[in-house]
Design a protein around this nucleic acid. Structure first.
Lengths: 207, 207
DNA sequence: TGTCGATCTATCCAGTGCCAAGATAGTAGG
DNA sequence: CCTACTATCTTGGCACTGGATAGATCGACA
């Protein structure tokens, strides 16, 4: 009995997969707003109406992208927590995900781009949520609030950084900044040294 | 002073202002992606090519929106700091701005929508930045890092909240959540015993 | 009064998403 | 084998968009 995915290859091969990958590539290059179904079809060498058969419409395509994104994020966070057992490192992994898997990240948190009520998305989303709020219980007796705080911090850092809104003095390594900034949560940094700084940071402000 | 009936005159009078306000209204209703120059022109009762004369193109219009947004944000933050002298309250004001002036907020931090190198924007942006990093010096001896941390926290909270990504258990009052969450940065502010929680928060002792 | 620049209009073009109808290719059943 | 059947894909069309160009109109000023 043929695999469910394999059943998809009739004429083209695996159009659905190809389109998805092309979509991610296009988003990586020019963002979700510039995505064009017809352009994707051209890249894949099919007619402009072919994609509509696999994804109902543009929303459908982006819904698929977001779903895969949430699945990948959940896996990434889980792996980070299991490897380090550190709540802070989960946050760092979140930022790294945003940078490396930017096309997914750019779609996932803009529900107006896709269908947030899609059943597939709800599940994937929940899995991510669990990895965000679960470890929070280890650092605070208000896990919900602590989770939201940590999530907000890392999410804000990632979005500001990706959009180029952070001061250049921080250096380009978002992950390092994330690690430094994470130290400010739930405990005041020991004044003095304590917090890691970008290595080439030269301008000590002396304040 | 021009009468409302005069909107049909050949020379509209203050088309630029009218278009800007219509744009903000449209973004408030359906987001920046759905904004249509032609729709704006229709609302203003002019031809679809008229807007191009005041704003070069769509980017130009959104650049103007972002500029006004940064100016408003700077004023808001400054007012908050002067009124309370509290770094945390600046953060709360940031979140309130995001909620109340959402159309601006939705454009300001998406540089791909406008022209980030516009000279007008650079100035307005700088003014906002000063209000973000200045007060940070009062709570940490690493003002840049502290500023980024606080900014990230509040920005993340605002974007997650606006996009509907926060757990419903927090209640709908983003400003209250902001105040609660701010307590997790740099130690809780001295005035608070414990962290302020949304007033109707019922689930005490959940675990 | 006549000129001139700023403002607005009338057309046109390329591109988009989506829809409907038809063509094609694999699969299953007689 | 050959005929339905269905998923896949193509063709063509519609309404809309942003942008460019050329012309019309207005207001101000010499």
């Amino acid at each position: 009995m043929p695999d469910a995915e394999d059943a998809r290859r009739y004429h083209h091969g695996d159009l659905r997969r190809v389109l998805l990958e092309a979509a991610v590539a296009s988003i990586r290059e020019s963002g979700p707003a510039a995505l064009s179904l017809r352009e994707l079809a051209r890249r894949a060498g099919v007619s402009h109406a072919a994609p509509a058969h696999h994804f109902r419409d543009k929303r459908g395509l982006l819904t698929a992208v977001a779903t895969e994104g949430f699945e990948r994020l959940a896996a990434t966070l889980r792996a980070a927590y299991e490897a380090t057992n550190s709540f802070a490192e989960v946050g760092v992994a979140y930022v790294r995900f945003a940078v490396e898997e930017r096309p997914f990240f750019d779609v996932m948190f803009r529900p107006e781009l896709y269908d947030p009520d899609d059943p597939g998305i709800a599940a994937a989303r929940l899995a991510s949520g669990a990895m965000l709020y679960g470890p929070a219980a280890t650092v605070s007796d208000h896990p919900l609030e602590a989770g939201v705080a940590a999530w907000s911090l890392m999410h804000g850092l990632a979005t500001l950084g990706l959009a180029g809104n952070l001061p250049p003095a921080l250096g380009g390594d978002l992950e390092a900044v994330a690690r430094a900034v994470a130290g400010h949560l739930f405990q005041a940094p020991r004044q003095g040294e304590a917090v890691a700084r970008p290595p080439n940071e030269k301008n000590k402000k002396k304040r």
